[in-house]
Amino acid sequence: MTDVPTHDSGGAHAATGWAPPLPLFLLQPVLARVVRRVASRYPELLERLGPVRGARFLIDPRGLPFTLLLKPDPDALLLRACPRGRPPAHDALIAGRFLDLLELVDAAEDGDALFFSRELTITGDTEAVVTLRNALDNVEGSVAATVAGMFGPPGRAALAALRRAARRGTPEAQP
């Protein structure tokens, strides 16, 4: 495990230093469904991860009021929302704008370019992160669309709005 501080940079109440407790427990069953759906839809993704399937990735989508802990182990899949400021034990941290991370998941953005421009931050187990990036890049079709499709027309509409915002790169891009 790596002791890596999270980057609490985008919470809605960052300016005041105070945030109401988030009802993250409501999100957990949804996230569990999401990771199971992605794993079953894209088995080649987990296969390509090979020995790093047991790694714990802390994903910090700047602009969202929580972080995500991912463990892509097919025998113990985990995707869980975590409160900012209280990072769980993890092996690697990936931090970036939510919409950039969304584009990375769908291979619509180049991770190295985001790294060069400092819009993407990586700490901890670099090998695990590189493996995850390469495995995701080999997935054809849209992981984000698969997830959005789980929530029917509202999910798809929300994704379309996010992508429009990402293309514009306007403040609206911040969820």
Binding site: H7, R118, T121, I122, T123, T126, E127, V129, V130, T131
Partner: peptide
């Protein structure tokens, strides 16, 4: 530069 041997550290001022 094998990834297993690469480490990135970031301080509170954003220096990597």
């Amino acid at each position: 530069s094998p990834a297993a041997d690469v480490h990135y550290d970031r301080d509170t001022e954003g220096t990597m």
